[in-house]
Nucleic acid binder design. Sequence first.
DNA 1: GATCTAATTTGCAATTTGTGCTAACAAGAA
DNA 2: TTCTTGTTAGCACAAATTGCAAATTAGATC
Lengths: 157, 157
Amino acid sequence: MQSPTALAALYRSHGRKVTPQRQLLFQLMHENDQHPTAEALFAEASAQMPGISLRTVYQTLNELAEMGELQFIDIGGGPTRFDPNLDDHHHVVCSDCGHIRDVQVSGAAALHPSGAEDFVINEVGVVFQGVCSSCEKSRAKAGKSPLNKTFTHVYQN
Amino acid sequence: MQSPTALAALYRSHGRKVTPQRQLLFQLMHENDQHPTAEALFAEASAQMPGISLRTVYQTLNELAEMGELQFIDIGGGPTRFDPNLDDHHHVVCSDCGHIRDVQVSGAAALHPSGAEDFVINEVGVVFQGVCSSCEKSRAKAGKSPLNKTFTHVYQN
DNA sequence: GATCTAATTTGCAATTTGTGCTAACAAGAA
DNA sequence: TTCTTGTTAGCACAAATTGCAAATTAGATC
Ligand SMILES: [Mn+2]
Ligand SMILES: [Mn+2]
Ligand SMILES: [Zn+2]
Ligand SMILES: [Zn+2]
């Protein structure tokens, strides 16, 4: 996603208005590597702008996605996560706490599917399932089995 | 997922009962490569067993997942899809119609993330975005741009 | 700066997908 | 056949997101 200033210009060039709500969300999303949910963003935004509505958060995120400035990430059945990182990258998900981390995956672009010769492929996404270090620690302490099921959904494969 | 007969035995060995509803769902899911939604399965099941409840469909699918007999697939924000294919495989999604196709991806198991050295990785999933041949045809006929946005969500990356 | 208009924000209703709960029911053991 | 315990169905509820319309405001125009 571009800088808040660049986005303001982009918005105006699209006949969209640059409101305080949008500017705040531009800031909150810019270089945000947390893959936040709409609710999480709403909470952050509300702290700085009491009264902003969740509806506006969703609306702005949808616009940004429409304009190609961010991506929606749907993994594991929870709420949609939003990703302003437009670089070619992939994700690791902690199956325990749900945290998503950006990762590089060398060789990902070279992957090819066998059995879909009739498809025109546009993109590849790689998702690793794992357990983050902090969850690994608490798991050891609790004497849990290596793969608990806080998350009912088994992520994609 | 195992055969309906094997599942019946497995269920009994777990102290679970083998009901007509479950047997029907075993049949409908066995070797089903459609990655159906719960609603889709419910529709098919209802045709053969009027009165079966959607609740029971969800319940049975959850059980099967718990027993490791099927996977949940969450892509693109729509409803969860269910996958009885336990082989190591990956998916291609048509960004136009949403169809999911099983594919093999040689080299997928060898992929490694850079930037998540503190994670214990358990699984890798590869998802290709593309347009299936039938959508490609209708797209050509309609003179549409190569990537329309019937699906707001940009799938993972 | 005042005026005007179209875009935006809000709040709330509605929708979609899935789960919690429980009374009625039925599998399968005895 | 009886009995116990797991299961089903149905409905209420929850979570996430969108539809809608009245009130507001950005920014163009005068
Ligand atoms: Mn990312
Ligand atoms: Mn599959
Ligand atoms: Zn974690
Ligand atoms: Zn298609």
